[in-house]
Design a protein around this nucleic acid. Structure first.
Length: 276
DNA sequence: ACAATATCCTGCGAGC
DNA sequence: TGCTCGCAGGATATTG
C-alpha cells in the first residue's frame, strides 16, 4: 500500500530510467483505471509524448509530458509502475503498457484495480480537484507546527483519523500513521482537543522523522509494494507496531494490540501509548 | 459544515 | 482437501 515514502521511492527510481524517453505505443489490457480522457483518447494522446519530469504530491505521481501534458497517477493499494524489458512476458494483472523508444516498457500492474490515471493538460493541473484538496506536503517548509495546530484547532476527531486525512497533511496512510503515533506515544483514539502544546511539537517532529526514515529505507513492502525497478522496500523490518499484533513491544515488552479506528486496522502498544 | 460509513477489487488465511 | 467468509485499505460518493 504505497504511502508517501513508497511513492517517493517509485518517483526517484523512475526518474533515473524514463526521463527523456518517448512513448511509442500504448497497450491497454484493462482500461478501468483510466479516469480521463476516454480509453481511446488516452491511448492516442500518449503516443509520441516524451517524459520530461516526474513530481510527487502526497501519494500522487505527476508525469510531465511533452506538448504540455500531464499524467496524474495514484497507485492506491496494489498498483505498481515498473520499468521492464519489452521482451519479457506480461505478469498477471498487467493492465497498461507504455512502450518506450529504448526497448523497454513502463508497465502498470494492479491486483485490485483501484489505481487511477488522469491525463490532462498542464494548465488544468492547478484546478484538478484530487490534487487541489490536498493538505501541505509534510516534508516541505509549508508544513509547520503553527500551521498544523491552526488547521486542527477546532477538530473533534481522534488523532489517527486526522493523520490519515489527506486534507490535513498529504501522504500518510495506515502504516505510517500507526508508526508515527507509536513514536509520539499517543493512543490512536486520542482526541485532538486533549493534545498538549508539547504533543503538537512531538507529533510534527515524528511525522517528518518517520516519513524521512521510510524514504531512506526505500519504503515498506508489507504485501505487494515494489519500486520502479521492481525492488522491495526495507522499512518493514523497522516497523514497531504495524502488523505486529501479539508481538512484544520493542520498547517496553507489552503485547502489541490491534483495534479498529475509522474502520481501519490499527496497531499500538497499550503501555507506550496509553489511552488518555 | 462536518464526520462517519459504504464502495470499488483480488488474494489470502482461518475455520470447518 | 476444498469450500466459504472476512479482511486488507486508497480516495470518493453517499449518508448521517
Amino acid at each position: 500500500m504505497p504511502e508517501l515514502p513508497e511513492v517517493e521511492t517509485v518517483k526517484r527510481s523512475l526518474q533515473k530510467k524514463i526521463i527523456g524517453k518517448k512513448i511509442i505505443r500504448v497497450l491497454i489490457n484493462y482500461g478501468g483505471n483510466i479516469r480521463q480522457p476516454g480509453m481511446e483518447m488516452f491511448r492516442l494522446s500518449l503516443v509520441d509524448k516524451v517524459f520530461e519530469d516526474i513530481d510527487r504530491r502526497g501519494k500522487f505521481l505527476i508525469f510531465y509530458l511533452s506538448e504540455e501534458m500531464a499524467l496524474v497517477v495514484h497507485l492506491r493499494m496494489t498498483g505498481q509502475l515498473v520499468y521492464t524489458e519489452s521482451e519479457l512476458p506480461l505478469e498477471k494483472h498487467t493492465h497498461l503498457i507504455f512502450r518506450l523508444n529504448d526497448g523497454m516498457d513502463l508497465r502498470y500492474l494492479d491486483i485490485r484495480k483501484f489505481g487511477t490515471f488522469d491525463l490532462l493538460s498542464r494548465e488544468k493541473l492547478s484546478n484538478f480537484k484530487s490534487l487541489n484538496q490536498l493538505g501541505p506536503e509534510p516534508l516541505s517548509e509549508d508544513f509547520t507546527v503553527e500551521k498544523m495546530r491552526e488547521s486542527i484547532s477546532k477538530s473533534e476527531r481522534v488523532i489517527k483519523n486526522l493523520l490519515m486525512d489527506q486534507t490535513f497533511v498529504a501522504g500518510i496512510g495506515n502504516i505510517y500513521a500507526d508508526e508515527i503515533l507509536f513514536e509520539v506515544g499517543l493512543h490512536p483514539e486520542t482526541n485532538i482537543q486533549s493534545l498538549s502544546e508539547k504533543d503538537f511539537y512531538s507529533l510534527h517532529e515524528a511525522i517528518v522523522a518517520i516519513l524521512n526514515l521510510g524514504i531512506s529505507h526505500r519504503g515498506t513492502t508489507f504485501r505487494n509494494y515494489v519500486d520502479g525497478d521492481g525492488r522491495q522496500g526495507q522499512f518493514q523490518e523497522l516497523l514497531k507496531v504495524y502488523g505486529r499484533k501479539g508481538n512484544l513491544c520493542s520498547r517496553c515488552e507489552a503485547e502489541i494490540q490491534k483495534i479498529k479506528v475509522g474502520g481501519r486496522g490499527t496497531y499500538y502498544c497499550p503501555k507506550c501509548q496509553p489511552k488518555a
